[in-house]
Design a protein around this nucleic acid. Structure first.
Lengths: 142, 142
DNA sequence: TTACGTGCAAAATATTTGCAAGAAG
DNA sequence: CTTCTTGCAAATATTTTGCACGTAA
């Protein structure tokens, strides 16, 4: 249990819910790939392993897992994406040109957050932010 | 023409497209209200003035206006919102508790953007950002 | 054994498209 | 006139729901 996904089984059962194969599969599917996963990717991975799982179940389970705080969701470039929760707070730089996704550690944002809180009294609750722009390679290429 | 919406009529015609009453109405509808407007609000306002305008037209026209760069769109708290383009770049603080939307000027973010560009070579193109959190009032109330 | 969860199919929504008629330039 | 746009209706796509059955605990 060295991984980020501590003991999700316990987290689910603790609150009186059940751990089902479907929930495990879908949670796995969110973990696969590098970080962000779209609904369709999740469906594809799930159907790979168990063709019988229903679309409605995927919808319901993703909602459920969000509600449990085991996964989080964000909107990148008009696409809803899911990702496993409980990681270090971090953010992404998404290149509009090539679509590449780079990671940005939370530390970079701390100065900004502190300033907003100090000057506006607004406490930003920023689990995951997405900054769109242009990456270095694409800029050089121009 | 002191307003932000310069001469959109010209901008449209310049590129060989036509200015229609529908396009004017929908553009107006996006301007009304204070800043953000949802699809449904737009429909409601449009139907107020002209019941006959078709849903498909609203969809097509919003796409069109985005394509022309006359409006911009963002995602706030699971809701797609539209807003007139060409304003000063600015951002919003959205309170998760009460839903209030405060404006945040671009200046606040500049230090962050400069840092990302310096350290990562990534040029953030930040027309409009949304920070979720908790506003001062709601924090006091706890 | 007990309800929680799932599959299934249908319903409710949301969005897109083809095409003929209407209208902007 | 020309051809871009719209309205309409149908086609798609997406998401949600009700219900009987299956199964985790």
């Amino acid at each position: 249990m060295s991984h980020q996904s501590l003991d999700y089984a316990t987290k689910i059962r603790e609150r009186g819910f059940r751990l089902t194969p479907q929930r495990e599969l879908i949670l796995d599917a969110v973990c696969e790939g590098s970080g962000h996963t779209t609904f369709d990717e999740i469906c594809a991975r799930v159907h790979d392993k168990a063709k019988a799982i229903n679309l409605a179940t995927v919808y319901r389970t993703l909602d459920f897992l969000c509600g449990m705080g085991l996964i989080v969701t964000a909107e990148i470039n008009d696409h809803r994406v899911y990702e496993i929760a409980g990681q270090q707070p971090h953010h992404h730089l998404v290149c509009r040109a090539c679509g590449r996704v780079e990671r940005l550690d939370h530390e970079m944002l701390e100065a900004l957050l502190a300033k907003v809180e100090r000057e506006r009294g607004f406490k930003v609750d920023m689990g995951h932010m997405v900054l769109l722009g242009q990456c270095q390679d694409c800029r050089n290429r121009e």
